[in-house]
Design a protein around this nucleic acid. Sequence first.
DNA 1: GGCAGATGTGAGTAAAAGCTCACATTCTTT
DNA 2: AAAGAATGTGAGCTTTTACTCACATCTGCC
Lengths: 220, 220
Amino acid sequence: MSPSNPSQIRKTPRQRRSAETVEAILTAAAHILEKEGFDAATTNHVAVKAGVSIGSLYQYFPNKESLVRALNDRHTREILELLRKRFVEVRKAPMEDSVKAIVRAMVEVHRVNPALHRVLVNIVPSIGGLAETRVVEDSATNLLSQFLKARAAELRPLNPDLSAFMLVHAVEALTHAAVLEHPELLKGDVFVNEASLMILGYLRGSAEASKHPPPRAAKK
Amino acid sequence: MSPSNPSQIRKTPRQRRSAETVEAILTAAAHILEKEGFDAATTNHVAVKAGVSIGSLYQYFPNKESLVRALNDRHTREILELLRKRFVEVRKAPMEDSVKAIVRAMVEVHRVNPALHRVLVNIVPSIGGLAETRVVEDSATNLLSQFLKARAAELRPLNPDLSAFMLVHAVEALTHAAVLEHPELLKGDVFVNEASLMILGYLRGSAEASKHPPPRAAKK
DNA sequence: GGCAGATGTGAGTAAAAGCTCACATTCTTT
DNA sequence: AAAGAATGTGAGCTTTTACTCACATCTGCC
């Protein structure tokens, strides 16, 4: 397969008809993963739900894993695009507004299809997609690290890579938990405010004890 | 069987011999889950590795799920016990020391068997263990919420349940990420310090924000 | 020793799921 | 229109795996 095809699509569709077939397969797979979970997403089931034959599915996806990875690739690409966009947009906004905008973006992204997202996050590493997941995490960490460097003057002394690592994982987990366990927090700005308090508290130092020396750990 | 047996053990061992069999099965299952993943943990494979026959396995575990759930129960019970212990220990320690001790406990707990822990966290919800997982999360949240109430005087005004929810999820995710992706941060106190900065920053309020209040209302 | 209950055995069964392949249909091109 | 390429089909093959059951062996007790 071509090296520029991380999800290992077997055949590149040449006619509109086949492009629609691929789309139907991916959509059906997403629906099943979301509503019934990974175990229910058998290749036969996906094919039936997509309204195509099992043979067609295997024309485009060499195996079940590649199908799930294709979905994951699309999903993570969307997330990264939105994040990049937001980081550019807030480049000159006040610190607090920037942080809130980015948290909002995270929520926005995770609310599109939380169940699917969770399934993908859980399953992808075990089907050879660990590398892809790391790429996404690293990209997000880099975006945030750049942001922290640009805003250093407004923050306590810190190691941008380390802080970005901490925040990426904390915010990702918080967003997951909020979307899946306490969606009511997302109605108003409760969640965005709390997450921002945490982020800003971490980046600025706490009110009473803000006399910590900068950490000396170098990442990577 | 007995209602106090959430992992649904089929038969209660009456002789030492059978207790050893059960132990061997659980140990083998843990090893396989840890080293080879969930898919490799077939019942036959577990039985062979445990040095018992497949029939013996099914004498004590009615199905594969119950076996994994039994492992998970044991694992989460250990975690909760340690956390409870630590929360009691730090009841009268200074805020900063308390927070660090609790973060250390989290790291300690997750370092015992990070790979197994990750597998269990990923798999248990999909095999009927979601309730158990929620129980653990809720217990941890309650412990922390109590702690926050007791220390209210040292903290900014906050909602203990909400803050506990935020912190439980953030710290859990951070510990996972550190253990699995950057174990070098655990060598010294780098990780413990960073996590504590985040926690204390969140609980005390950020340095600048408390000097000059935000231009807009914090709540919408 | 000898019995009864507890425990252990593993070949075999049945169901599920991934995947192939020989063939049918549709599209593009000349 | 015709041919060849692209696409679509689905019965069924193959492998895997959870799980059973008829039987063997062990252990404690009289």
